[in-house]
Simulated scan of single mutants.
Amino acid sequence: MARPEPRSHAVPLALAGSAGMLMPLQALITSNAAGFLGGYFAAALISALTSLACLMVASIALPGARAGWRKFGSVWRERQIPRWFLLAGLVGAYYMVAQAMSVSNIGLALFAVAVVGARTLTSIVIDVIGFSPAGKQPVTRIRILGAALLVVGAVIASWGTGARSAESPLAWASLAVAMGAGLLVSFQQSMNGRAGQAYGSTTTATAINYLASTAGLLIAMAVLALLKIESFGFTSVPLWWMYLAGPLGILFVVTGVTLVPRLGALVLGIGLVTGQLAGSLAMDLILTPEKVGVNEIIGTLVTLLAVLVASWQPNGRPRWKTRKTP
Rank of each mutant, 00 (worst) to 15 (best):
L175H: 02
L175N: 00
L175A: 13
A176Y: 12
A178C: 03
A178F: 09
A178M: 01
M179S: 06
A181C: 10
G182L: 08
L183Q: 03
L183Y: 03
L184K: 01
V185A: 11
V185H: 05
S186H: 00
F187L: 15
F187A: 14
Q188N: 02
M191F: 14
M191K: 05
N192H: 11
N192D: 12
R194W: 04
R194Q: 14
A195F: 10
G196W: 03
G196A: 15
Q197G: 13
A198K: 03
Y199D: 00
T203C: 10
T203H: 04
T204V: 13
A205H: 01
A205Y: 04
A207G: 03
I208S: 09
N209F: 08
Y210C: 02
L211P: 00
A212W: 08
A212E: 05
A215V: 15
G216S: 08
G216M: 01
L218M: 12
L218P: 00
L218N: 10
A220W: 13
M221C: 09
M221A: 11
A222G: 13
L224C: 09
L224R: 13
A225C: 08
L226D: 09
L226P: 00
L227M: 15
K228Q: 15
E230P: 03
E230G: 10
S231R: 14
F232I: 12
T235I: 15
S236F: 06
V237K: 08
P238I: 13
L239Y: 10
L239P: 01
W240F: 14
W240C: 07
W240N: 04
W240M: 10
W241E: 10
M242K: 01
L244T: 11
L244D: 04
A245R: 07
P247E: 11
P247R: 12
P247D: 11
L248R: 02
L248V: 09
G249P: 03
G249H: 04
L251R: 04
L251M: 13
L251N: 10
F252C: 02
F252P: 00
V253H: 06
V253C: 00
V254M: 12
